[in-house]
């Protein structure tokens, strides 16, 4: 859970920074997308780095989900008789209790997102358009529900990271001092907030017409 999650967080940071290129204009954004495919060339064939990244990400997502499912199954087996009284969280950890259903929402989002932006199947411009055109077309006001879905999914990602980021350090045994843990928890909130704002900024700016 911790190791695969860490890889996925690194990817999210890179992805968020890449997305921000939309604010530098169509050329910059399309050129960046092109660069992702040709990085390392001519020493490496095109798409080498991209393909390796894709494989690592798929492996991480599968292992992350496998770990989550086995933990959930162990939890169900460990408490066969449920409590009659509704249990109130005593740890004030709202984000912590969104991890399982939030993860499912994120997976559904990733599937839609790939069909929308990578393959162009559900994108109005289709898969042959430039990445910039696909992005702009994807978040037009008449498709406001797409932007809304992105927004909800990104908030879920934020909650997921708010718990997941510091939790990974705890799982790996790196939070043995209370001060380290509280610093990490604060950092987790900050990093999650920056990522959510970074990811949400592009769809929102396109939706309200700031980026055309």
């Amino acid at each position: 859970m911790a190791v695969t999650g860490a890889v996925l967080v690194l990817f999210l940071i890179a992805h968020m920074l890449g997305n921000l290129k939309i604010f530098l204009g169509a050329d910059s954004f399309n050129h960046y997308a092109e660069w992702l495919r040709t990085v390392g060339s001519p020493a490496l064939p095109n798409r080498t780095v991209l393909t390796i990244t894709e494989i690592v990400l798929v492996v991480c997502v599968v292992l992350h989900m496998w770990a989550a499912v086995s933990l959930a199954r162990r939890a169900a087996k460990a408490r066969p008789v449920k409590y009659a009284a509704k249990r109130k969280s005593q740890a004030n950890g709202y984000a912590t209790h969104t991890m399982r259903y939030g993860g499912v929402i994120i997976v559904l989002f990733v599937i839609w997102h790939l069909l929308d932006m990578t393959f162009g199947t559900v994108n109005p411009e289709g898969g042959d358009a430039t990445p910039y055109a696909r992005m702009i077309a994807g978040f037009q006001p008449d498709r406001w529900w797409v932007a809304l879905f992105y927004l909800v999914a990104m908030v879920m990602v934020g909650f997921h990271l708010r718990h997941g980021l510091w939790s990974a350090f705890q799982t790996l045994g790196l939070t043995r001092r209370p001060r380290v843990r509280s610093t990490l928890q604060t950092t987790a909130v900050a990093v999650s907030a920056v990522l959510v704002i970074g990811f949400v900024s592009a769809p929102v700016c396109i939706l309200i017409g700031v980026v055309k």
């Binding site: 933990l71 740890a91 991890m99 790196l174 043995r176």
Partner: peptide, 23 residues
């Protein structure tokens, strides 16, 4: 079950056993 670092344990612990022990 397995630990997912929810922190519910230390919040109800009558002796306030610190969460860091799990780390």
């Amino acid at each position: 079950g397995g630990c997912t670092n929810t922190g519910e344990c230390t919040a109800v612990c009558p002796k306030g056993i610190p969460f860091d022990t799990i780390a």
